[in-house]
Computed example of a mutant assay.
Amino acid sequence: MKLHGKVAIVTGGASGFGAGIVRRFVAEGARVVIADRNGSAAQALAAELGSACLALPVDISDAAEVQALFTETVVAFRGVDILVNNAGIGHTPQPLETLPQDDFDRLFAVNVRSIYLTARHAVPLMKAAGGGAILNIASTGGVSPRPNLTWYNASKGWVITATRAMAVELAPSQIRVNALNPVAGETPLLKTFMGDDTPEVRAKFLASIPLGRFSTPADMGAAAAFLCSDDASMITGVALEVDGGRCI
């Protein structure tokens, strides 16, 4: 029960890595707000996990909806101890000069602007409470970029730099800020990154991961629970690679 009594918001929490984080947080004793654009999926997960969860539909790139997310969370749970910025999107592999501008704008709205928006509300609440933990989900792509995913890689590189900058600024307020760098995982985004989900393409991806498997939602849940718990009370500004050795 590492997170007993804590209140957490997990964006993009209805599926993939986000759902793995939600499940582990609940198992560790936290009350969790599942914030996801797919409201029905968020409701289904909340119904499965019980009264410890609250499902809220939200477009995490929209300022008004983010404000409403925090307002409703405070009403329901009286505060926010942990924020996990997990919501993210990718783009199909392609030469960098061919990605349409609308796709680029949406990519940075979800992967980048959302972290700015959630910080505007989470940080004042955490400062008033005397501390907290923020976890940003980045990617190995921000450390060791794959070709033809340039703009996705760049967005995740921003997340890593923002994590470190936030950690330095917020440390005096006892707010720890860390990141996870997962390798490609068994989530709805996997097909997006691969382009074609075929045995040949999967074999190519797996060949770059020394442990020989994709990451799973349970892997992310375990790492997230550690970094957001008091066991990691001396850890801030870290971008932890949960990648089976890909970045070695």
Score class of each variant (00 low, 15 high):
T92H: 13
T73M: 10
I175S: 09
D230L: 07
A225L: 02
F108C: 07
I9M: 06
A14I: 01
V75N: 12
D81C: 11
D243H: 05
L135C: 05
Q94S: 13
V110Y: 11
T71E: 15
D62M: 11
G130I: 03
G221K: 00
I60E: 08
G130D: 03
N136I: 07
W158S: 11
V168A: 14
I235G: 03
E72D: 14
K6N: 10
A133K: 05
G237E: 06
D219N: 11
F77V: 08
N38G: 04
G79Y: 12
V183D: 04
A63K: 06
Y152R: 00
H121A: 12
C53A: 04
G29F: 04
G212A: 11
A42W: 14
E65P: 11
G90C: 08
A14W: 03
L83R: 04
E97G: 06
E169F: 01
V242T: 12
P145V: 14
P172L: 07
A41E: 04
K191W: 07
A162Y: 12
L180Y: 10
S15D: 13
E186L: 14
Q174W: 11
P57I: 10
G221W: 02
V242K: 03
V201T: 15
D219V: 06
L49N: 00
V201N: 14
V201F: 01
I9D: 12
V159G: 06
I89S: 09
G13P: 02
P95K: 10
L49H: 01
S208Q: 14
A171I: 06
T192N: 12
G50C: 10
R23C: 03
S61W: 02
L170P: 00
R78S: 15
A46K: 12
T118P: 07
M234N: 11
P182I: 00
A109G: 13
S229D: 13
G39T: 07
A222D: 13
G132Y: 06
S61F: 09
P57M: 05
F193E: 06
V183F: 11
E241N: 15
C228S: 09
R106H: 13
E97K: 05
L190E: 12
S61R: 10
V33I: 15
V183E: 13
A133I: 05
G195V: 08
Q43Y: 03
T118Q: 14
V80G: 07
R176H: 06
V183T: 15
V143P: 01
G79I: 06
Q43S: 14
V7K: 14
G221T: 05
D219H: 05
S15G: 00
L206S: 09
G39Y: 04
D196T: 14
V112G: 09
A19Q: 14
H121D: 09
N111L: 07
A14F: 01
R164A: 05
E97F: 13
D105I: 05
